[in-house]
Design a protein around this nucleic acid. Structure first.
Lengths: 215, 215, 215, 215
DNA sequence: TATGAATGAGTCTTCATTCAT
DNA sequence: TATGAATGAAGACTCATTCAT
C-alpha cells in the first residue's frame, strides 16, 4: 500500500493512523506531516484541506471494508451465515479503525462538515442495500417469519447497530422519537423470542405484540 | 432551569447545550461565556477548567437520566416492560443529549482525558447493575430460557447498545476480537429466534447453536 | 509577630513567605490569600494593591534588618569587627530573605515600580551612612591608610557588595562605565594590599588573623 | 547585527533588548513580536517556547562575554592585570546586559526553570576555571601570600562578586550560613591586608598605584 | 513536485482589581 | 470589618492555511 516513493500514499497512511488514534479534532496537520516525514506544505500540495484529507482517509478504509463485506456475504451460503457476516464484520472493522470509521458511519458528533455527511449517507445506503438483499434471500428460501417487515428490519438494524442518522434530520424531533419507539418495540420482541422460554413466551408476548401491532 | 441569578446554573445550561451541539473539542470556553452572557473569567470562577466543566455537564445530565431510568423500571411490572424500558430510555435520552451522554457512556473517540474515563466506567457499572436486576427478576418469574447466560447477556447488551469498553483494554486486541465474535454469535441467535419461522427455525438453528455452544 | 487574630499581620506574614519563595511576579494575590486562610478581597481591604503589599513586606523585613545591623555594629568595639559586621550581616540577612530583600536592595531587574525604587534609595542611603560612620571611626583610630578615599570606599563597597544603583541612572552610560572602571581599580588594590596602614596593621591584626586561622 | 532578512536574528535581537529591559516575567512574547515587527507565531516557528527563547538570548550574550573575557585575560601579562580583567569585565558586561546575564549567572530569584539552572552552573564553572588559572599564574610568579588558600579564594570571589549558588543547596541552611561566615572573614582579611606577600608587593605595585593614582 | 517561512485567528487559562453586601 | 462574586485585559501557545521559490 505504501510501495514506491509515492508521497500521497505516505500522507494518507499517516493520516489514517493518526485520525484513528486521536480523532479528527485532535489530530493536527503538523503531526501528520511529521509522521509521514514530509513537509507540511506537501500535504497541501496533494490535499486542498485537512477536511478533504480526512474524507480521503475514510474513503480508503471504507472501500476496503465494503470489499471485505460483500465478498464475505457472497461466499456465505446459508441465510444465517450471511446475516452473521453482516452483523459481525462491521463491528470487527470499526473496532480496527476506530474512530475513523465510527466518524464516517455514526452520527457522533453531529456537527461535522458537509462533505462528511454526504459520505455518511452514501455508506448507510450501501449498508441498507446489502441487508435488504440478505433479507430477500431469506424470504426466497421461505425461512423468514412473514410478520417481520423486512425493510423496516433493515432500517432498524442499521440504526441500532451501526447507529442511525437520527442526527441528520435536524429539528424534526417528533418524527425521530416515534421511530425510536417503533424500533425499540421491535427490538424487544426480537430479544424476547430469543431469551424467553418457548412455552411461557408465546402466550405472554403474543398479546403484547398484537396490542402494539407489528407494522 | 435558569431561574434566579445563579450564574453557575446559567453556565452549566449553556455548556450542556453547546457541548451537545458541537462536542467537546469544537466548543470553546469563549462561546459558552458568550451564550451565558457572562465574562469568560466567571466560568473559571466556578469551574477550574474546561475539562471540569464538561464533566459537570455530563454529571448533571447523567443523574437526570439515571433517575428517569430507575423510576421507569421500578414502575413497570412485567419483565418485558422492564426490559423495554431499559432498552428504550437510553436511546431516547442519548438522542436528546447527543453527544454529551454519548461521550459519557460510549467509548468514541478513545483519546479522552482520564476524568471522563472514570465517569464512563461508573456509568457502565450502573447500567450493568440495572440490567442484572431485571434479568434476576425474569429468572425468579421463571420466564427466562435457562440456556441464556444472563450475565453474559447483560454484558453484551451494554456492549452493543450502549457500546462497550473495548477501547479501554489497551493492546490486548485478540481478547477483544474473541469477545466481539462471541457476542455477535449470541446476537445472531437472538435475532434468528425472532425473525425465523418457528418450524423452519428450530431444526436449522438448534444444530448451529449446539455446535457453537451457548455459554 | 502573628499574635492575636490580626488579619493584617497574617497577610503580611504569608506575603513575606511567598514573595521570598517565588519573587514578586510569580506570586499571585490568590496564593497569598490562600496561605493566609482569608478571602482575597480582605487583602484589598488592608492594602490598596499588590505593589503596596510588596513594599509593606519589604519594609517589615528591612526594619528588622537595620535594627540588627546597627545594634551589632554598635556592640562591636574594634574597627575590624565593625567592618566585619557590616560586610557579613547583609549577606546573611539577604540569604534568609531571598529574593525579597534582594529585590529591595539590588537593582535586578531594573524595571520595578517607582515605590520600590524610592525604598531602594532610602535603604542604600542608610547603608552608606553606616559605612561612613565606621570609616570615620577607623580614621579617628588612625589605622586607615590615608591613601584610601573613604567616601569613595563606602560607595564602592555598597556598589559591589550590595550592588549599586547603576541602573537608576538612566541613559548616562558613559558616566557609569567610568565609575565602574574607577571602582574596580580600587577593588583590585584593596584585594592586593588592603586598607590598613602597613605599620599599624601588622601588630594589631596578626593576632586576630592567627586566632581565626586562614585556611 | 540585524543585517539581511534573517528573522531569527531579528527576534533574538528584540528579545535580548526586551528581556534586558524588563526581565523574563515582565516581557511578553507579544511585545517581542511587536518590537521585531513580525507575527507572534513566527517566534514560535523559530523557538519552541518563551523559555527556550530566553535561554537562546542568554547564550548569545554569554558567549560574547566569555570571548571578551578570555581574550582580555590572555592579553594581560601581569598577574594584577589578569585579576583586574576578571573582576572588572563581568561587572561591565553584566551592567550592559542587565538583567539578562544577571539571570544567567546569579541566583536571584530562585524560582527559575530547570534549563536556566543548567546554564547557570555551566557559566559558574567556566568562571571558576578562569579564576583558578589566574591564581595559578600568580602562584608560579611567587607573588601570592601563601596564607591565602587560593581555591577557597576563587570560590569566594565568585560567590561574592558574581553571587554564589547558595540557593541551589536546598534546605541545608546551617551549612550555607557557616560558609557565608567563613567567606566574610576571609573577605575582611583581604580588605584589610590584601593577598600579596608583604615584601614582594611593595616594589611591584607602588609603581602601578602611582600611575593610576588613588583619589 | 516540494517545501521553508510566515501568519491571523483562535485556544485555554491567569490574575489584579472592583463592587455590592 | 470582611468577603463572595464578577470581570477585563493580558498571557503563552496552537494550528490550518498561504505563498514565494
Amino acid at each position: 500500500m505504501n510501495t514506491g516513493s509515492d508521497k500521497k500514499e505516505l500522507i494518507l497512511d499517516s493520516a489514517i493512523e493518526l485520525f484513528n488514534r486521536w480523532g479528527y479534532a485532535k489530530t493536527s496537520v503538523d503531526e501528520i506531516a511529521r509522521a509521514a516525514h514530509i513537509a507540511k506544505s506537501t500535504i497541501y500540495y496533494y490535499f486542498p484541506s485537512k477536511e478533504n484529507l480526512f474524507i480521503a482517509a475514510i474513503e480508503e478504509k471504507a472501500e476496503e471494508f465494503f470489499n471485505k463485506l460483500t465478498t464475505a456475504i457472497e461466499a456465505a451460503e446459508k441465510f444465517e451465515d450471511k446475516l452473521s457476516c453482516f452483523l459481525s464484520l462491521p463491528i470487527t472493522c470499526i473496532f480496527q479503525n476506530m474512530p475513523l470509521l465510527a466518524n464516517a458511519m455514526q452520527q457522533i458528533p453531529p456537527d461535522y462538515f458537509t462533505s462528511l455527511l454526504i459520505k455518511r449517507n452514501e455508506y448507510r445506503q450501501r449498508m441498507n442495500n446489502l441487508l435488504a438483499e440478505i433479507m430477500n434471500y431469506g424470504k426466497k428460501q421461505g425461512i423468514i417469519n412473514e410478520k417481520i417487515n423486512s425493510e423496516h428490519f433493515s432500517e432498524m438494524i442499521n440504526d441500532w447497530f451501526i447507529m442511525g442518522d437520527y442526527w441528520n434530520e435536524g429539528d424534526n424531533k417528533n418524527r425521530i422519537l416515534k421511530r425510536l419507539e417503533r424500533d425499540h418495540v421491535l427490538m424487544v420482541q426480537l430479544l424476547l423470542y430469543g431469551i424467553l422460554k418457548r412455552d411461557t413466551a408465546k402466550p405472554r408476548t403474543r398479546k403484547k405484540v398484537n396490542k402494539r401491532k407489528i407494522q
